[in-house]
Amino acid sequence: MSFLALTALAIVRLKDLFAVVMLSGLYSLLSASFFLSLDAVDVAFTEASVGAGISTLLFLASLKLVGRYEKKSRYKPALALGIVMVTGALLVYGTLDMPHFGAVDAPIHQHVAPRYINDSMTEIGVPNAVTSVLASYRGFDTLGETLVIFTAGIGVMSLLLVSRQTKDQSKKKVPADMQQQIILRVVAKMMIPLILMFGLYVQFHGDYGPGGGFQAGVIFAAGVILYTMLFGLSSAQRVFKRQILELLTAFGVLLYGGVGVVSMLLGGNFLDYNVLRHDPVHGQHLGILLVELGVGITVASVMILVFFKFTWRTVKHKYNQ
């Protein structure tokens, strides 16, 4: 915890944006371990892959475009400090009546949650309670979450749209600074299939261990991004065409929503997987499998696409200069 606070404070002071971004990655990594210590394995997994992985990559990609130093500015810290103090004080005031940390008798452990712990095994048949809540009990939230990712994807796509002429300017197959690093490339070549495999494993193993569609999507995307960084955008693009990626982002959402619609057509409520098979538990299995796949596809394709977009911009910039 103290590390976290130190990191955060360092971020406040530093002017070098590169260091700031790196530190925020560190912050995410630290928080992931913190989550782990609080039994939130799924969350830790996600935070590590998202906060320390993807989001740091994105920050770096955009730093490349905007320059790495923060200018000295005449901001007025007094007012900001005031607002922050008041907000913080209100929160601390709010904590005074909270149930204590780790207490077993806190209200949240008495209501609603016990059913997830006690009955999800019989109702859904998936050992990872997080997965069953995520994909089934609160499946609609997760559909919304997938849609959020899709929305962001649409936003980035439309904002960083590159006109057709400039798109294929990355004639060089491999970034110059990477050409020399043969060892790195060889190691990476061996690593990347492993990463992709691991992504698939996480995708389908989410029922039992930590993980699921979202984490899998991120890992898969990270693999592709790594490949892009080492072997250049154009070779990555040969495998992942822009149009196909765009369609995949939409396809994931549709797959998820489609499961809902099918369950509706079969006589259940929206996203009621029980009706998908004769046996409700099997139905739940199938449903969760499919929706997790939907999440994974959308997440992976949006992440890859977003990264590509940023890289395209970089290429275009270099070309313009």
Partner: peptide, 26 residues
């Protein structure tokens, strides 16, 4: 077991966070 519900919520929130960040960066 620890309560799974907050975990689920936060998974969703992390996703929202990265979505916002991506859009903000672009």
């Amino acid at each position: 077991y620890s309560n799974p519900l907050p975990h689920v919520l936060i998974l969703t929130a992390i996703v929202v966070g990265i979505a916002t960040t991506a859009l903000g960066l672009s």
